[in-house]
């Protein structure tokens, strides 16, 4: 497959959140601000790249019957690394994302990439795929976080541009569903 196409497919056309509706739990649960969304996206991107590398390296040795459990263990090990690393170096962000860091392990999008792509392709294209898809996921979470932050607290990445309280509902749970609904409608329009 053409590597450039392989890299960019995750941005809009096969975007994990907007087009495939995968990984919705962290996408809605952590995007109260653009910064949190980006942090979650980058953490997931690390896991997806690393697990794609390992899965594509071991794909010839793993018996077919136990492949899913072995992929899950590989993913879980990288998630533990991210969890401990973030707790050590970015305690404030780690506190904000909370439960959703260990839950990267059950993010269907990460396991989906391992099963659908990395277990069938070479190391090189698996890395490119993990990088592109991870970037698409980060992009989606940052966009969702940014739109919720702009509407909910009239700010972007913490810089407030109107000196008053925003529409609080977009920071709370209902706003997450509604903002994602409109962003998906927008992506559908762009995909046509």
């Amino acid at each position: 497959m053409d590597q450039a196409k392989n890299f960019t497919k995750g941005f809009i056309r096969e975007n994990p959140v907007f087009a495939l509706m995968l990984g919705l739990c962290p996408a809605l649960g952590t995007t109260t601000s653009a910064y949190n969304g980006m942090g979650m996206g980058l953490a997931t991107m690390f896991v997806v790249i690393m697990s794609n590398i390992v899965v594509s390296l071991i794909k010839d040795f793993v018996p077919n019957k136990v492949r899913i459990p072995s992929y899950i263990v590989i993913i879980a090990s990288f998630v533990t690394m991210v969890d401990l690393g973030m707790a050590g170096y970015m305690p404030a962000l780690h506190e904000q994302l909370g439960l959703f860091i260990p839950l990267i392990v059950v993010n269907c999008f990460v396991l989906g990439r391992a099963e659908a792509f990395a277990s069938r392709n070479t190391l090189g294209s698996s890395v490119v795929d993990g990088f592109g898809m991870g970037l698409g996921f980060t992009l989606a979470l940052t966009m969702l976080g940014a739109s919720r932050e702009i509407l909910g607290s009239y700010a972007l990445f913490g810089f407030q541009f109107i000196g008053q309280d925003g529409m609080l509902v977009f920071i709370l749970a209902p706003g997450a569903f509604i903002a994602l609904g409109y962003l998906i409608a927008l992506t559908n329009k762009l995909n046509k």
Partner: peptide
Amino acid sequence: KGMRGNPIILVAAGLLAMAFM
């Protein structure tokens, strides 16, 4: 037309979440 499928379901879920608030 633009809201058919997933978008309208998400908005409905949002209103449901608002009710639970």
